[in-house]
Amino acid sequence: MSADPYSDEVRELFNEPRHAGRLDDGISVREDAQGVRVELSAIAGGGLLTALGFRVWGCPHLIAAAEAVCARFEGREARELEGFRTAQIMEILAIPVEKTGRILVLEDAVRSLGQAVRGRSDEA
């Protein structure tokens, strides 16, 4: 028997991602692992993330999670990125445990983005 593998939240975020795309004038990071590709970009100012964008090659759960992450951090302090953990987002979106590996690639990308933003701020 096949239960619906996607929660309503995943379907909504997958079908209408508001943060899809690359912010060309922002800071970008990329992770390629577990057979997926995740690219995150951010525009930051005064320690705040003013805009976030993502591009993903992967399954619907990963696309939805990337969108959820962007929505969650937009307007928040950039330093929060480095403490990001996937567990909460997996629970909210009801992502099956077998997708953990792919979602961890997103976690790595979020943390890398946090470091990159911090690095840029330190330079400034």
């Binding site: 991602p17 899809a20 795309g21 690359r22 990329r30 390629d32 590709r37 995740v38 690219e39 591009r55 993903v56 090659w57 696309i63």
Partner: peptide
């Protein structure tokens, strides 16, 4: 395809 980053 629009949503995906280019292959490395």
């Amino acid at each position: 395809r629009r949503l995906a980053p280019e292959r490395a």
